[in-house]
Design a protein around this nucleic acid. Structure first.
Length: 192
DNA sequence: GCAGTGATCATA
DNA sequence: ATGATCACTGCC
């Protein structure tokens, strides 16, 4: 797989290569720099990795939702640039983590070009169902909001096996956005 | 079906 | 300052 003569490389590069071949390749910010619905579909089957007190916890992403941008009335950014939505304008791959209903943290990844507020909500991964339960299980809270997904943040994505089938349905809990946006099939579930 | 919980945002 | 509204879950 790796054609380089690794034994001739300096030690630190050998370490990097060892890490990279131990796991699947990390998804780089460029992966997220595409339309939210494209990213939402492609994220199915990818691996969400999180460091919990130094331990690697990996889950397969099985359910996502796309929030397309300011014109999408179900998207937080549809009501403009505010303190909360500020992070949605950050570069692709930035974590957007917000608090709802007084109890739950939601995990999103910003998509598309910097300055364009769109994101993908991670609704379920592995055997854990429910997006609030996901963040609770991974001990994710607002401290990581605005950080770039990557090893330096302790939470990142890696490539994985694409699902055999993708089911698309309307998004959950967005009736307030009106029929046009609440009926559009922007929720994706991966099945093997 | 709805209680619980608190940030957020529009209105004032 | 105040009040409505939540990209929810679990228990009834």
């Amino acid at each position: 797989m790796n054609a380089w003569p690794t034994d001739s490389l300096p030690g630190r590069w050998q370490n990097v290569l060892t890490m990279e071949t131990t796991h699947s390749p990390d998804l780089e910010p460029a992966f997220f720099d595409r339309p939210a619905d494209t990213v939402a579909r492609d994220l199915l089957g990818k691996t969400l990795v999180c460091l919990i007190s130094g331990k690697r916890v990996a889950l397969t992403v099985t359910e996502t939702e796309a929030y397309l941008g300011p014109h999408d009335l179900a998207c937080h950014a549809a009501r403009g640039r505010t303190q909360r939505t500020e992070v949605m304008y950050a570069p692709a791959g930035t974590l957007y983590i917000y608090f709802v209903y007084g109890l739950h943290w939601m995990l999103n990844v910003v998509t598309g070009p910097e300055g364009y507020p769109a994101a993908v909500l991670i609704r379920a991964a592995g055997v854990i169902s429910g997006h609030a339960r996901l963040t609770r299980a991974l001990a994710i809270d607002g401290k990581l909001n605005g950080r770039m997904a990557g090893r330096a943040s302790g939470i990142w994505f890696e490539s994985g096996k694409s699902p055999g089938r993708i089911i698309a349905t309307p998004r959950i809990g967005v009736a307030y956005a009106g029929p046009r946006w609440s009926s559009r099939k922007l929720r994706f579930i991966g099945e093997s």
